[in-house]
Design a binder for these strands. Structure first.
Lengths: 236, 236
DNA sequence: TAGATTGTTAATCGATTAACAATC
DNA sequence: TAGATTGTTAATCGATTAACAATC
């Protein structure tokens, strides 16, 4: 078992060795903080493109992404030199380069396990089905749900997890089960070959090295806000 | 408009002045990274307590929380000295101290705006209604939803937002609307007096200084996983 | 006292930011 | 050429970690 990275708490992820003293051509090893912002830039670029904007400065793009321009330029510098001094960035070109860097140009297969309220919401969520991801199965252990379908996908028995993962080469598993089911489901996903997990259950998952886990935890987000609320009340 | 902190991308939040050179008694100014982990420790302590465990070492608690013990001890040291050398921590006592520090001992009023699939899931989510938070209203602009109710709360017209926020002294607003509605809803929440926002809509919200925004973005989480998937595929 | 474990120090690491030389 | 804006440097800041003295 190794620690997995949690975006909000900063636990480091499985060792990913980078050859030291080897400055490979397209500069491998983008900082994790930068990786986490690339999707934000991508979304901002898509929005600019939809508004018909062909070129933008780092200042404009940074504004749209909610970061400062120095950070944006530093982040983009890890990918390469895709701007033009004195001019700015070509929106479509930069968009393509970032999409390629993230890897959303290739369709990744996703399964969602646990089709309760949250699972339903996730299955319907447009951002999930947008380019780069393909939901291939909705799994649940409750027979009452096997008659349901969300969009054009039926809810299938959890028993079929291994079969589906193998058949579709599933790379990403989304866990939206109750807390008690999360670790067993995670173990099965990993055993079946899934190497990335997005966990919505309020538990710390144990996974072997090489498996990435990201965690979205609603009540933790609320509690962080509560902490700051308390400070405001005292200070003011 | 000022930048607001986004947990995954690390945009700094509204200036929160700390008197310099003034080492106040209970040491104000807990690092943001530590604040984000306190709820994780709290949950781990609750789980230990439920298993009937009365005392634990930093090593054990760290294991349950998914961090290393040095980090845990450093984090706890910002709150005070709540352990006993040679012995460890009293689970109930530490649990109380962390809960008090976060401020979940006082009930904060929460409204959820946008009662689609995700809003439904949030309204039902046990973590939301657990101690420390009180959902006081579910708001939606769609008349078709005004007849619905989730749990014992009815969905009410968005028009009543200001009225509800004022009547219940709402501190936290949860935005689960489509992207296009998020900024206008945010503006109304802020104008009505809400100072903390949890945003599920895929947009960067602009808010005045003093308002905290946290963002949960499902497609961005997936894209971060996709980036690492791509690396694994290349490396292996 | 001997063993265990905290709380803190100091070193290291990574991320942010301002400033500016390079260059369109 | 003059103005604009990138890409990069270097300084700063904050977070992590190992190690260990303090102390139960």
């Amino acid at each position: 078992m190794s620690a997995t990275r949690d975006r909000s708490t900063g636990v480091e992820h499985a060792a990913r060795a980078v050859a030291p003293g080897r400055p490979a051509h397209p500069a491998r090893g983008i900082p994790e903080a930068t990786v986490a912002r690339l999707p934000v830039y991508l979304r901002a670029l898509v929005a600019l493109a939809e508004r018909g904007i062909a070129t933008c400065s780092s200042e404009e793009l940074a504004g749209a992404a909610g970061v400062n321009s120095a950070k944006l330029r530093k982040d983009l510098s890890y990918l390469g030199s895709y701007g033009t001094r004195g001019v700015g960035y070509d929106v479509e070109y930069l968009r393509y380069q970032i999409a390629r860097e993230i890897g959303v140009t290739q369709d990744l297969a996703v399964v969602i396990v646990g089709i309760g309220n949250l699972g339903h919401a996730l299955a319907n969520y447009a951002g999930f089905t947008s380019r780069g991801f393909r939901i291939v199965a909705l799994l649940d252990s409750d027979p009452d749900r096997w008659s349901e379908s969300v969009g054009d996908l039926a809810v299938v028995p959890l028993d079929r997890l291994e079969e589906v993962v193998a058949a579709e080469s599933v790379a990403i598993g989304v866990i939206a089960t109750p807390a008690s089911a999360a670790q067993p489901v995670c173990d099965r996903l990993v055993a079946a070959g899934v190497t990335s997990i997005l966990n919505f259950a309020p538990v710390v998952l144990s996974v072997p090295d090489g498996v990435d886990v990201r965690k979205v935890d609603l009540s933790i987000e609320l509690q962080i806000l509560a902490y700051h609320e308390q400070r405001k009340a005292v200070g003011a």
